[in-house]
Amino acid sequence: MRRIRVKDEQAVIELRDTSYSYRGGEPLLQGMTLQVAPGSFHFLTGPSGAGKSTLLKLMYAELQATGGAVTLFGQDSRVMDRNAVADVRTRIGVVHQDCQFLDHLSIADNVALPLMVQGKPVGSDLHDLLAWVGLSDRMHAFPPELSGGERQRAALARAVILSPDVILADEPTGNIDWDMSQRVLQLLVELNKMGKTVMVATHDIALIRAAKPQVSTRILRISNKRLQSAGAEL
């Protein structure tokens, strides 16, 4: 078993011998050590239930490691207060598999939500962003009115509206067809080329294979509770 270590002093996310167990039970993740370099593109794969979503939650501080340490932009997440957690999330955009929209708000308001909670003005960037993800004509629709692919693209737009340094995507193509998966992948690759660090958790091997020609990726696999490099066999 080989531990992954990106040798970069400026790692945006760093795990050191990190483990996590729910409610004091058996560890779901164990001995994870990883440095995520700025501007890198990672895929995180593994079977369902392996802990991909849990690992992502550790990376945006929704969960706190039960062992070892998680460092986000140089701050140890164990000692971050609630305001610091809120602040670090403005630097990490998250795309959830179920999108996590507020159904009483329009798509435009949902996408602009990170700006609104920061008290920042919602300007023309919102229209540009919606045009970029191909949702200009759907901005006044409400989340339940959107297709799966439209929802994923809107979630991606919300994740990047604050121009975060890191984008974490949890099964962003889990509920959409292949063509739409390709469109979402293309958007993520574009973001990476703009300098954003991207980590995509997916069990869709075809998606990973489709990405390889487009971008330099590092592929991680969670196996037996541990993180392994999985680039060669893919």
Binding site: R82, R89, H96, L113, V117, L162
Partner: peptide, 16 residues
């Protein structure tokens, strides 16, 4: 509860 969770996830502080 869901609204509150989403707001926290997008970086809202408790006071907001």
């Amino acid at each position: 509860a869901q609204v509150i969770r989403v707001l926290r996830l997008v970086g809202a502080r408790d006071t907001f």
